[in-house]
Amino acid sequence: SYYEILDVPRSASADDIKKAYRRKALQWHPDKNPDNKEFAEKKFKEVAEAYEVLSDKHKREIYDR
């Protein structure tokens, strides 16, 4: 789930989600993982997609249904 990707509970606040996104984006940024760039790019995209949905109140409500 998007919550698992960002490592936050379903009850996470918008601020918690933003902090988790920043932490995970740094962790999986391809430039930070030169030895495993392809895998890092995949993870980085997953993190971005999760944040896009969970950071938008309307999209998150739909996702949580």
Rank of each mutant, 00 (worst) to 15 (best):
A12L: 01
A50L: 00
D7T: 03
D35T: 13
K57R: 13
S1K: 09
W28H: 04
E38Q: 12
K59I: 04
K37S: 09
H58N: 15
D35G: 12
P34G: 09
D16K: 05
S13K: 06
K18H: 15
Y63A: 02
W28K: 01
R60V: 02
K42L: 13
S55Y: 07
H29N: 12
D35L: 13
D56H: 06
K42G: 08
A40I: 04
I62P: 03
K59R: 13
F39R: 06
K18A: 13
Y63H: 04
L6T: 00
R65H: 10
D31C: 11
N33S: 06
A48H: 13
R23D: 15
N36K: 08
A48V: 15
D15C: 10
A20N: 03
V8L: 12
A25M: 14
D35F: 14
K37E: 08
H29C: 10
I17D: 00
D15H: 11
D35K: 09
L26S: 13
Y63E: 02
E4A: 12
E41D: 10
K45Y: 08
D64E: 04
D35H: 13
K59E: 05
R65T: 10
Y63W: 03
K32V: 12
K18R: 13
V47Y: 05
A40D: 03
F44D: 03
K42E: 11
A25D: 02
R10C: 13
S55G: 15
A25K: 11
L26V: 07
R60K: 10
K18N: 14
S13I: 04
Q27A: 07
K45E: 07
R60T: 02
R23W: 08
D7E: 14
V47C: 10
H29A: 12
K24Q: 07
E46I: 06
E49T: 09
I62N: 10
D16L: 07
K57C: 11
E49S: 06
A25R: 14
A48W: 14
L26P: 02
D16Y: 04
Q27Y: 11
A50P: 00
V53W: 07
A50Q: 00
I17C: 02
E52H: 10
D56N: 09
A14Q: 14
E49H: 10
E4Y: 09
L54Q: 00
P34S: 11
A12G: 04
K42R: 13
L54N: 00
R65P: 04
E38S: 12
I62V: 10
F39I: 11
E38V: 11
A20R: 01
S11I: 07
A12D: 01
F39T: 07
R65Q: 13
A25I: 14
I5Q: 04
P34E: 14
Y51F: 12
S11A: 09
L54K: 00
E46V: 04
R23C: 13
R10P: 13
F44V: 04
E52S: 13
P34L: 13
K37H: 08
Y51W: 09
K37G: 06
N33V: 05
V8H: 00
I5R: 05
V8M: 04
F44Y: 13
K57F: 11
E49N: 07
V8D: 00
E38K: 11
V47E: 01
Y21P: 00
H29R: 09
V47K: 00
A48E: 14
N33R: 04
S11K: 08
D7M: 06
A20G: 05
A25T: 12
A14C: 10
E52N: 11
I17A: 01
H58W: 12
F44L: 14
K59T: 07
R60L: 02
L6D: 00
I17V: 06
R22C: 14
W28G: 02
D56G: 03
L54I: 03
A50R: 00
V53S: 03
V53H: 07
R10G: 05
S13T: 14
D15E: 14
K24C: 08
K19S: 12
A48R: 15
E52M: 12
R60F: 03
K32D: 07
D7P: 01
Y3T: 01
S13A: 06
L26A: 14
E61F: 08
D16V: 08
Y21H: 04
V47F: 05
R22F: 15
K45G: 06
V8R: 00
D15W: 09
A48L: 15
E46P: 02
P30Q: 06
E38L: 11
W28D: 01
L6Y: 01
Y2H: 05
K43P: 01
E46M: 11
R22E: 15
R23V: 15
K32W: 10
R22D: 15
R22Q: 15
R60P: 01
Y51E: 01
E61Q: 09
R10A: 08
R60S: 02
D15A: 13
K57W: 10
I62S: 09
D31A: 10
A50N: 01
Y21W: 09
Y21A: 07
K43I: 10
A50Y: 00
Q27E: 13
P9M: 07
A20K: 02
Y51K: 01
V47W: 02
D16S: 06
A40Q: 06
H29L: 09
L6I: 03
L54T: 02
R60A: 02
R22H: 15
E49M: 12
V47Q: 01
Y63P: 02
A25Q: 13
S11G: 12
Y3W: 03
F44A: 08
V47I: 15
N36M: 11
D64A: 02
A50S: 04
D64H: 03
A48P: 00
I5K: 04
K32Q: 14
S11R: 07
K19T: 11
E4V: 11
L54Y: 00
P9G: 08
E38A: 14
K43R: 13
N33K: 04
D35V: 09
W28Q: 02
V8T: 03
K42N: 09
A20E: 02
P34C: 09
L26D: 15
K24S: 05
A40C: 08
E41Y: 10
E52A: 14
R10S: 10
A40W: 07
N33M: 06
A14H: 12
A25G: 05
A20D: 01
Y63C: 03
Y63F: 05
E49G: 05
Q27I: 11
I17T: 00
Y21D: 00
Y51V: 03
R65A: 11
S11V: 06
R23S: 13
D16N: 04
E38W: 10
N36I: 11
S55W: 05
A48T: 14
Y2A: 04
E52C: 12
E61C: 12
E41A: 14
D56S: 06
L54D: 00
K45R: 14
A14M: 15
R22L: 15
F39C: 09
D7A: 08
D56P: 01
A25C: 15
E46Y: 05
S13E: 05
R10Y: 12
K57L: 10
H58V: 14
F44I: 06
D64N: 04
E46W: 06
W28I: 03
K18G: 08
D64V: 01
E49P: 00
E52W: 13
